[in-house]
Design a protein around this nucleic acid. Structure first.
Lengths: 185, 185
DNA sequence: CCAAGTAGCTGTATCTTACAGATAATTCTC
DNA sequence: GAGAATTATCTGTAAGATACAGCTACTTGG
């Protein structure tokens, strides 16, 4: 955890000020664009005239996708994968159960746990939403040649990997700090 | 709504089925990653140990950036640029005024309007946040060589342009529909 | 000068998520 | 094993971000 405290870069060869500036500018551009993209998220979904986006909450969709891809899971595993608080997953899962999208059963291997599995209806709904979103992005990226789309996909995948990794690291850090603080009073 | 029942792909020229499939898969990947990135937004900001992110709301930051880049503006112009509802901007701007980040003056050229301008304090705050975010992204992208970062920035910029264009188009569409409907009854 | 349109504001509602605390079950330690 | 520490889930509550509908004040085109 000490690699974390250090701003990771102290004295630096003064030689290459211009390159440094370009690096800083790049970060600024990336930061700006990611912020914009995140802010636009809701607007984009709402802008989808096909209304399919309304049938699944953000987290619900992500949960179904992950259950589909990785099989039945308990709440904690979902929360960890999705970088969400357990309480959030619990609530989403409750709503999804009410709507018949998933089933919840006690974990046979751990009496505290609950295993969540998608239902047929849940998977159908997910696929419908997925298709609608694909159409939406096909519209947004109408002018992009395939090669560019491939590059975009690759970049986003790598970015997300690193964002997730970073979020997990920081979250773990914060947990540690909290429990350390609790010792002090 | 009938497109909904169909699993999205009926008879289709069998000629190029493979390329089509790859295109669909690409869209799926992009859709997945954008959704994930948007969902991660809050987590990422919260994960920033430097806490600067707390001092500015999402929209407040975007507003200051735009005021900085494009000069004083009235509320509507800000809303249009940021793809936000006017009421949202109004509220943000009120809070920002309370906090001394911007000043609001009647528009000399239009008695209905209000011109919003950043204060020194506002710009300082924005720059602090910007720097903190740049640090954050430098950490997230620690393993990325400059060339990759450049590609990422370019891709995100183009994606956002198209997302914004699409959101505006759809928004206009919806407005038209609404007013058309109003005529009917 | 009046009708139609526009800018901004306020009330209210929705969605998404987190943190803190409670409960129950599990695992570790001696 | 008995008690302590840990973990999984759930519930209560709160905060942030944003939109839509309706209001007032102002502007503008005939």
């Amino acid at each position: 955890m000490s690699a974390y405290d250090e701003p990771e870069r102290t004295a630096r060869p003064a030689t290459d000020g211009q390159a440094d500036e370009e690096r800083a500018d790049l970060l600024g551009r990336i930061e700006t664009e990611v912020a914009m993209l995140m802010r636009l998220g809701e607007a984009t979904r709402r802008s989808d005239p096909s209304a399919e986006h309304r049938v699944l909450d953000r987290a619900a969709y992500a949960i179904l996708r992950h259950l589909d891809a990785a099989g039945p899971q308990n709440v904690s595993a979902l929360a960890a994968y999705l970088v969400l608080d357990g309480s959030t997953v619990t609530r989403q899962v409750s709503a999804m159960q009410r709507d018949g999208l998933i089933v919840r059963e006690p974990d046979p291997r751990d009496g505290r746990g609950t295993v969540v599995a998608p239902t047929e209806a849940g998977l159908n709904r997910m696929n419908a939403v997925r298709a609608a979103r694909a159409r939406l992005y096909d519209g947004i990226l109408a002018d992009w040649p395939d090669e560019e789309r491939r590059v975009l996909a690759r970049m986003l995948e790598r970015l997300n990997e690193d964002v997730v990794a970073h979020a997990r690291r920081s979250r773990a850090n914060r947990r540690d700090q909290r429990s350390t603080n609790e010792d002090l009073p």
